[in-house]
């Protein structure tokens, strides 16, 4: 038996929004640690990994590890039936083929129960080693979204150059070139507005904007985004979900022909 309850459906709705354009089917792995999901996009270029920790839930019961194979479109459609303020309960039997989604209004006057058919999915899991990165940039997530969107008007790729104290995002295309420089904040009152740049060694890598724009669908989950970059390894774009977990995206750099 698996059953968990979140005080607000909003966070799970936003999590589904962050995933649905990138992956069509996925497996939620349920264990005593919480819910987790890892999936490559259909072209196997990028990877998304989600962790929702037990401590962030109102209640969490998992008698036995289970894998819930879901169609992301379907789950997102059902999640949209919840109001943001509703509390949400997810429930599934150990060998069941259904996931129950129960939405309860804050005043307790309305309870909606949906049952979603689960899928038997065999999804390849990749082993992601823990590693140190050459550079870690933290910046307002809305700013990063804006940069990716704006540079998409110029080219298909963004070149990210990190040096001490700042980052250059640049793009080249048939119509012209663009360069956006973001400087590390010197003094910020609100942590969400801060830009921090940690540099162990400067890096200069190129990434496909198409995927970065998919990743920025997670923007409503967190005021800040972190970009972890090292030469010749995938970029990690991470959004922390307060008190609950994270959504992390991995994207291989483009390599010069």
């Amino acid at each position: 038996m698996f059953e968990c309850r979140l005080p607000k459906a909003e966070v799970l709705k936003k999590t589904m929004d962050a995933l649905k354009d990138l992956i069509k089917e996925a497996v939620w792995d349920v264990s005593a640690q919480g819910l987790s999901l890892q999936s490559m996009d259909s072209s196997h270029v990028s990877l998304v990994q989600v962790t929702l920790r037990t401590e962030g839930f109102d209640t969490f019961r998992c008698d036995k590890n289970i894998a819930l194979g879901v169609n992301m479109d379907t789950m997102q459609k059902l999640m949209k039936c919840a109001s943001n303020d509703d509390n949400i309960t997810l429930k599934s039997e150990d060998n069941g083929d259904l996931l129950s989604l129960i939405f309860e209004s804050p005043n307790g006057e309305k309870t909606s129960e949906y049952e979603m058919k689960l899928m038997d999915l065999d999804i390849e899991q990749l082993g992601i080693p823990d590693q140190e990165y050459s550079c870690t940039i933290k910046m307002p997530s809305g700013e990063f979204q804006r940069i990716c969107r704006d540079l998409s008007n110029i080219g298909e790729s963004v070149n990210i150059t990190v040096v001490k104290g700042g980052v250059d995002f640049s793009a080249k295309g048939d119509i012209g070139n663009a360069k956006i420089h973001v400087t590390e904040s010197s003094n910020v009152d609100n942590e969400k507005d801060a830009v921090t740049v940690e540099v162990n060694e400067p890096v200069n890598l190129t990434f496909a904007l198409r995927y970065l724009n998919f990743f920025t669908k997670a923007t409503p989950l967190s005021g800040q985004v972190s970009l972890s970059i090292s030469p010749d390894v995938p970029l990690v774009v991470a959004y922390e979900i307060e008190d609950l977990g994270h959504v992390k995206y991995f994207l291989a750099p483009k390599i010069e022909n």
Binding site: M40, H44, V45, E124, L126, G127, S157, P234, F250
Partner: peptide
């Protein structure tokens, strides 16, 4: 020109 490499190249399939 630049090439987009897949994520599998970097991480092992478990």
């Amino acid at each position: 020109d630049s090439w987009q490499v897949g994520i599998i190249i970097y991480y092992l399939i478990l």
